[in-house]
Design a protein around this nucleic acid. Structure first.
Length: 278
DNA sequence: AGTCTTGTTCGACT
DNA sequence: CAGTCGAACAAGAC
């Protein structure tokens, strides 16, 4: 499940591939729904001849600015992944969109569950502008976070998962952050004290940076899990505090980690460190 | 062989 | 309007 650290890892990989400055010479669309908004024919026609200008991340989107005023927005959703392969190599059955790059390589969008999307647009801000602040920027201060949380009145976990509220967090890093801050996922956002918000602010930034340093979280061994462009696994799974560690000991107090459902999503908590009050 | 799981978006409902 | 809930998407794991 690619979240901010995983998407950033992919973007960093793409930037070191040496494809910036090169152009797309063609494309193949084997699963039309992966391409958002355009027919496969239109998409192929549009991308052919476009030069890759810049590759960056916003929230969980891979943003690829192209020439001719176009931008590719790639969202990996749950099992999406980008592979960089020689054109000669046979494609596997989950590689749904093939982007040929000038030279000898191909960028292939692989996605077992087919939830991922590639959007070609001339106005990326229509999509990206709706996203909440980036948690790792300087503009995201504890004070601002406090005001954000107090402007809403709902459980803190679903709020942190809401990309319009804050961009880049998913189930893994939210559970890790809440544990680190000692806050129960069902706590009412507006009930969090300044101290608690301060802890949560630090925790969010801490777990994201740790994930980034470890080049992402890869759980299990199935191919739907996270792998970088070069096919490498992230190392962060070994350093998770609570996520998917139900029944094991809380690293802080030794109590058994529990799994509860919050907003139809599984949540991992330490019942001792994360007491529920509201 | 059927059920469950998974993240995100969207529509229906309170 | 604000917030909550369930469905839909698709395929693999069990």
């Amino acid at each position: 499940m690619p979240e901010l650290p995983e998407v950033q890892t992919v973007v960093d990989n793409l930037n070191s591939l040496g494809i910036v400055g090169r152009c797309f010479t063609g494309a193949e669309v084997r699963w039309p729904k992966t391409v958002d908004g355009l027919s496969p024919g239109d998409f192929i026609q549009n991308i052919r001849g476009c030069t890759i200008r810049r590759i960056l991340r916003r929230g969980k989107y891979i943003v690829m600015h192209l020439s001719q005023g176009k931008t590719l927005l790639i969202h990996l959703r749950m099992t999406g992944r980008l592979n960089w392969e020689p054109a000669a190599k046979a494609h596997n059955k989950h590689e749904h969109v093939i982007l040929r790059v000038e030279g000898k390589g191909e960028l292939r969008f692989q996605d077992t569950r087919k939830f991922g999307r590639i959007t070609m647009t001339s106005s990326p801000e229509t999509v990206l502008g709706k996203l909440g602040p980036e948690p790792l920027t300087r503009a995201f201060t504890a004070d601002r976070f406090h005001r954000m949380l107090h402007s809403r009145s709902c459980a803190v976990k679903p709020l942190l998962l809401d990309q319009k509220f804050i961009a880049g967090l998913g189930n893994i890093y939210v559970d890790e952050s809440l544990w680190k801050a000692g806050i129960h996922p069902l706590r009412l956002s507006s009930s969090l004290s300044e101290t608690e918000v301060g802890r949560l602010h630090r925790a969010v930034r801490h777990v994201l940076k740790k994930g980034l340093r470890n080049l992402g979280t890869t759980l299990g061994s199935g191919e739907g899990n996270f792998y970088s462009v070069a096919g490498r696994r992230g190392r962060n799974a070994d350093e998770l505090y609570v996520f998917r560690r139900t029944g094991r000991d809380c690293p802080r107090c030794g109590m058994r980690i529990e799994r509860i459902i919050v907003a139809q999503r599984s949540s991992h908590i330490c019942p001792e460190c994360q007491r529920q009050s509201t």
